[in-house]
Design a protein around this nucleic acid. Structure first.
Length: 596
RNA sequence: GGUCCAGUAGCUCAGUUGGAUAGAGCAACAGCCUUCUAAGCUGUGGGUCGUGGGUUCGACUCCCGCCUGGAUCACCA
């Protein structure tokens, strides 16, 4: 790497010139900012103490030394305290020659290491997926792909929250008001149908609470005593005790939901390597709770409920098992974690879960450690911000959510409309046109969500938020389509486009240089995105790359260039850009059409 | 109230070991299609980086206080 070489030589320069040994990491080397000529900049201020000379003279002396030690340094300038180093075209061209036709450019060799488990999606089976889940799924899938590109072995894990009071609520409402309808008789997608009964439950629940308050109960009291809630709790007890009728209904309704989810995942382009069900891990969790109780690290109250006292860790007491013996949410998480650890001996366990559960994961780790599981430190909660609507927070209880299926439909419809308005894709036959609109609509949605740093909350206006111009998925797709068009029109089969060795006379145009310099960053971008588990680095890289390409495309002719060496170089540079975009966007789960 | 996260242009967002004049897109305005896809390119306007201190040659970035917004502290998941 040129950066390490420059650092080493600078250290040497300081030693030679001023007789002082500095650590390489003390040298301030960065990319030259746009307004100045140069590729890398050494900030000389920190070195003045050593040189005991003015910034200008120090910069010049180091600059001279470096220029003499490197063939690749074209020139340097010292402005104020900044030594700007300009690399020769040769350097960039060599870098280009090494990588332009590599399909796996930027990706790392697989590391021989224990796998990283990444859990995402984790839907509840009482309602369809909504906008919040979309962010979760896209983030999880992208992070997994980025880790793979970084050389990690990855296991994409989905944990289905298929049991608990929430599904009992839907079941109860279905028993009471369902009249035996099912997805085929009603024509409603399975997950939506179950969701309908979840909303119905909450309507009844609210009504009963209000009635009880009129009778003189406090709000809190009313919430606990509402008859439908008591009935739902009864169903949960029956379920945990294995009541056949309850289990049968539960299976049936969950089956509808899974069919529905399958469609939504397929549309989103999400797949998993392994699926866990809470109903299969909560018993292990209960066992661990029992173990903790026997060891004396957990405590039982007179009513039978079991608690962890975490006040020494800065948390409150946490209930792990209700007085009626049923388990709570965190109980299954304890079992799930244990199962994952035993089964995979992973190097890390990443959980992609919203920031509303920050406390939950702190508590989970704390409890696992209390139980003597030191591997709790392998757990990392990848916490992301909420997606809010202009009208405020989404509440599935009240049905004020943006449904994932509806949203995708709308995006693709809009994509089709815009494409038609622009007069494009006229010659495409029907099924392919549909695929194209799908690709564009989903690209817009995915890119919009993934370009935001995971940690941040985001507001999403279904009407106005998503654009097809500017910093968007379709912009990158369009750029790619332009590149494909160039390659196609060159008349050379893509697999045979190659430099022919006549590149010695090349002088780079500004836009060629800028583009090439930026493409050179891709390996670094993947590494940073993997380290920070942040797909927005890749998203922004793809956008900037496309922008640099469009500037290049606008400034210089490719196929119309008369000089053969230049024409071929530009064609290969375009192909290099295309490969890189395709690779980057595929990590985000975004497909790039050849034509649009 | 405790804890955690966030606050950058009218709007949506970049800005990562502290570096030069804080950047994009959208929206507004002005240009560029007889020339490789105008979903593009070029330009103009728009900022007390929430706020007040501190550290430093240098702070959007680090430290402290305050303000605002969000999350959370359930025998919900």
């Amino acid at each position: 790497m040129i950066v390490t070489l420059l650092l080493e030589k600078t250290v040497e320069a300081v030693k030679e010139l001023y007789g002082y040994s500095v650590e390489p990491d003390k040298i301030n080397l960065e990319k030259t900012s746009k307004e100045f000529e140069g590729d890398y900049t050494i900030v000389v201020f920190p070195l003045l103490r050593i040189s005991r000379k003015s910034p200008e003279i120090t910069g010049k002396e180091i600059g001279d030394f470096l220029k003499q030690s490197f063939d690749y340094i074209e020139s340097y300038t010292v402005i104020k305290g900044f030594l700007n180093i300009l690399l020769s075209d040769r350097y960039w061209i060599n870098l280009f020659l090494e990588n332009y036709n590599k399909q796996d450019y930027g990706r790392s060799e697989p590391i021989e290491d224990a796998p990283v488990i990444i859990e995402f999606s984790s839907p509840n089976t009482n309602k369809p997926l909504h906008l919040g889940h979309i962010r979760n799924n896209l983030l999880g899938y992208a992070v997994a792909s980025i880790l793979e590109a970084n050389g990690n072995k990855v296991i994409r894990m989905n944990l289905v929250n298929d049991r608990g009071i929430h599904i009992c609520k839907s079941m109860l409402a279905y028993i009471k008001w369902g009249n035996g309808e099912d997805p085929s008789t009603s024509g409603i997608k399975g997950d939506s149908l179950v969701g309908k009964y979840y909303v119905r439950f909450n309507e009844e629940y609210k009504k009963e609470i209000n009635e009880l308050i009129l009778k003189g109960y406090s709000q809190e009291e009313a919430e606990k005593r509402a008859p439908v809630l008591l009935e739902a709790q009864e169903i949960l007890r029956k379920w945990e005790s294995g009541d056949p009728g309850t289990i049968q209904l539960w299976r049936k309704m969950n089956g509808w939901v899974y069919k529905g989810f399958e469609k939504t995942y397929a549309r989103l382009g999400i797949t998993f390597d392994h699926v866990q069900f809470e109903s299969e891990t909560y018993l292990l969790g209960k066992e661990l709770v029992k173990e903790g109780l026997e060891k004396g690290v957990l405590a039982q109250k007179p009513d039978g409920s079991i608690w962890a006292d975490l006040t020494n860790d800065g948390f409150d007491e946490k209930v792990l098992q209700r007085s009626d013996g049923t388990s709570v949410y965190i109980t299954q998480d304890i079992g799930t974690a244990q199962q994952r650890y035993d089964h995979y001996h992973p190097s890390r366990m990443i959980y992609v879960v919203g920031n509303e559960q920050n406390y939950h994961f702190d508590v989970l780790k704390s409890i696992l450690k209390k139980l003597g599981r030191n591997w709790a430190d392998l757990i990392f909660h990848l916490s992301y911000g909420m997606v809010e609507l202009p009208s405020g927070k989404m509440k599935s209880r009240e049905g004020t959510v943006v449904d994932a299926d509806d949203l995708m439909d709308e995006m693709c419809e809009t994509a089709g409309k815009i494409t038609t308005e622009l007069g494009k894709a006229k010659d495409l036959p029907d099924p392919e046109a549909g695929e194209l609109f799908n690709s564009i609509g989903l690209a817009a949605l995915k890119f919009f969500i993934l370009k935001v740093s995971p940690k941040k909350n985001m507001t999403f206006d279904p009407v106005e938020s998503i654009d097809f111009n500017g910093n968007t998925g379709p912009f990158v797709q369009y750029t790619f389509a332009r590149i494909r068009s160039l390659l196609k029109k060159s008349g050379i089969p893509v697999s045979e486009i190659n430099m022919d060795g006549d590149e010695n006379s090349l002088v780079l145009m500004k836009s060629e240089r800028e583009l090439l310099k930026y493409l050179a960053l891709f390996p670094e971008v993947i590494r940073d995105a993997a380290n920070d588990l942040n797909p927005s680095f890749v998203t922004n890289f793809c956008y900037e790359t496309a922008k640099f390409f469009n500037q290049f495309y606008q400034e210089v002719p490719v196929l119309k260039e008369s000089d053969q060496a230049k024409r071929l170089f530009r064609l290969c540079l375009s192909m290099f850009t295309g490969n890189t975009l395709k690779s980057g966007m595929s990590m985000l789960g975004i497909t790039l059409p050849d034509q649009m």
